[in-house]
């Protein structure tokens, strides 16, 4: 594989994603973890661009960084006083969790390395095509119409449920 600018940027995004993911799960301050999660989400959006999924990358940035991350920060501010900003971790749990996680990673890497269908499936070199139009056609006029409607009902249910659960109880 020749070492081009594209591969350099790809490895940059991959390193950014994994390194900030490690910071998310190891840092003690929960606000730092939230901001590191933002870097991870941006890195995944960059990887989507490399996968020629431009609409998916834009959705990732808008929904995750603009929505979920702000929601998480609101949750941190409403539930953590100054004392709770530091995340409590138990030592025994840490060791056991690390063993389980490393074993799982080894298993996944072994499966990825030994599946013959996945070996040397290289980039076919096609240029970035805009996908928004075909995604819109498939969702609104194709085989994904029913899942789209179901997901919209699910969002409504989640909205009503979240408002109902988090409101203050009115006592008569």
């Amino acid at each position: 594989m020749e070492f081009t600018l594209k591969t350099l940027i790809f490895y940059g995004f991959a390193l950014l994603t994994v390194a900030s993911g490690i910071v998310v799960v190891t840092v003690r301050n929960i606000v730092h973890a939230a901001f590191s999660l933002m870097v991870t989400l941006f890195g995944v959006a960059g990887l989507y661009v490399f996968l020629q999924a431009d609409f998916l990358a834009a959705t990732q940035v808008i929904v995750y960084v603009g929505g979920i991350l702000v929601l998480i920060l609101f949750g941190v501010m409403m539930t953590s006083g100054r004392l709770e900003m530091r995340i409590h971790i138990e030592r025994g749990q840490l060791l056991l969790g690390a063993v389980v996680a490393i074993a799982l990673l080894m298993l996944l890497l072994a499966v990825i390395a030994n599946t013959p269908q996945w070996k040397n499936v290289a980039d076919d070199g096609t240029q970035l095509q805009p996908t928004t139009e075909s995604i819109g056609t498939l969702i609104l006029n194709g085989q994904f119409l029913l899942p789209f409607e179901v997901v919209s009902v699910l969002l409504l249910v989640a909205l009503i449920g979240a408002a109902l659960i988090s409101r203050k109880e009115v006592r008569e």
Binding site: V25, I87, H88, I89, Q93, L96, L104
Partner: peptide
Amino acid sequence: MLFTLGIFAVLTRRNAI
């Protein structure tokens, strides 16, 4: 790697967020 990091966080963190 991302999946493993997520599993690690779920197993070891003692804070719901």
